[in-house]
Amino acid sequence: MKKMSVDDKLGLNKFYPDEHNPHIEIDPDFTDEKEIMRVVKACPAELYKYENGKVIFNHEGCLECGTCRVVSGGKVVRVWHYPVGSMGIEYRQG
């Protein structure tokens, strides 16, 4: 089986994106590289990036697992909710 990027994998999923309504909020001023990298490495959808000493996050493509919240222990991820009803990932296999 050919190696695939996470972006390509997410491209096969079905999403109802809620573009302007992020259900996860990060702390943009948090700068501890080690802690940030743990969240970057943990997210199955690779939605966290560490760039120029800061954490960058995009909620679109979220698989709604909760791993970032658990791994960051309140440090990088400030608010974690599920998307509002009917939005976000729709699993067709599960």
């Binding site: 089986m1 096969l12 791993t67 699993y91 067709r92 296999q93 599960g94």
Partner: peptide, 14 residues
């Protein structure tokens, strides 16, 4: 085991 397979869905869960 997965040779020739086609990805249908990618998911995550705690």
């Amino acid at each position: 085991l997965i040779e020739g397979g086609k990805l249908l869905e990618y998911s995550a869960h705690l």
